[in-house]
């Protein structure tokens, strides 16, 4: 890339780099706090204050949370529903978004309006439960994937992304004899990798954070994802002691809480760096056009 070497540009770059670095540090600090507390001994935490580096290292909280297989088991459930669920999401959403991106399609506005309407009005928890139950999805992991197969928000924004793709590119495929499904999978999707990565990420994070539907739809707690556990640990720790008839255990709840947060958050945090290469500027578009 050609570098512009004017003074103005240099000042701009310096300010820009410094500012972004500061913002990035500001963003990561609390997570460092969470991480640090999870590795700190309970006694140290009891003294209070902001901990950014454990003075007395302790693995007690991690030993505690790994003392049963619940955490690992629910983590596997989470990974399973996240991977499979996101795949279902992307297929269903792009299948629907692509035709809706064609402005000549009859009935398109009506459908879009109907979709938009569901963003604002919904029947609520109980009627939805009845549908999920009628389809025999309750007590299966499908209940965490199918009822949310398409997000209206993602659909509308993805439709908008598809609309930006120049028609010329699609036409060449049509001349090659592809039908619309072929155009979508051979031309449009490869051209929309940044969008796919984005919505894949949105969906994946959505699946990862599910806890309410799991409790609602699934009675068998061995099928619950990790967020159910996380929620319970956080809530339990925030309610004060004094109700129990026995002493609280030796371990400071805060450190355990933080350890669970770390364990439940790291996997989904790792998704983004892997997707980043698809955000590289205009790769596909440039090459196809050139």
């Amino acid at each position: 890339m050609v570098q512009d070497k004017t003074i103005g540009n240099r000042i701009f770059d310096t300010v820009n780099y410094t500012l972004l670095l500061l913002i990035a540090l500001l963003c990561v600090m609390p997570f460092i706090y969470v991480l640090a507390v999870s590795f700190t001994s309970p006694a140290e935490v009891a003294k209070g204050g902001l901990i950014l580096w454990p003075k007395e290292w302790s693995l007690a909280s991690y030993r505690y949370i790994f003392s049963t297989n619940t955490l690992v088991r629910s983590m596997l459930v989470s990974i399973y529903i996240t991977v499979l669920g996101t795949l279902i999401n992307l297929i269903f959403t792009s299948l629907m978004a692509y035709p809706l991106a064609k402005t000549h399609l009859r009935g398109r506005q009506t459908i879009l309006l109907a979709v938009l309407f569901t963003m604002l009005f919904g029947g609520g928890m109980i009627p939805t439960y009845f549908v999920v139950k009628a389809l025999h999805l309750t007590n299966t992991l499908w209940s965490l994937m199918i009822p949310g197969a398409i997000s209206a928000f993602n659909l509308i924004v993805l439709k908008n992304f598809f609309q930006q793709i120049p028609d010329g590119l699609e036409d060449s495929a049509r001349i090659d004899g592809c039908n619309e499904v072929g155009v979508l999978f051979r031309i449009v999707l490869p051209l929309s990798l940044p969008a796919m990565a984005t919505f894949g990420l949105f969906y994946a994070v959505g699946h990862w954070n599910q806890f309410f539907n799991a409790i609602l739809y699934i009675n068998d707690n061995t099928k619950w994802p990790i967020q159910v556990l996380l929620r319970e640990v956080v809530i339990l720790a925030s309610s004060s002691i004094g109700d129990s008839t026995i002493d609280s255990t030796e371990i400071q709840p805060l450190t355990i809480r933080m350890a669970v947060i770390v364990f439940a958050t790291i996997p989904i945090l790792l998704v983004y760096p892997f997707l980043q290469k698809h955000f590289a500027k205009g790769v596909m578009l440039g090459s196809v056009k050139g």
Partner: peptide, 12 residues
């Protein structure tokens, strides 16, 4: 799905 009690992640 109702018969789908198995899945990769659970060993109930």
């Amino acid at each position: 799905s109702s018969g789908n009690n198995q899945n990769a992640a659970t060993n109930s």
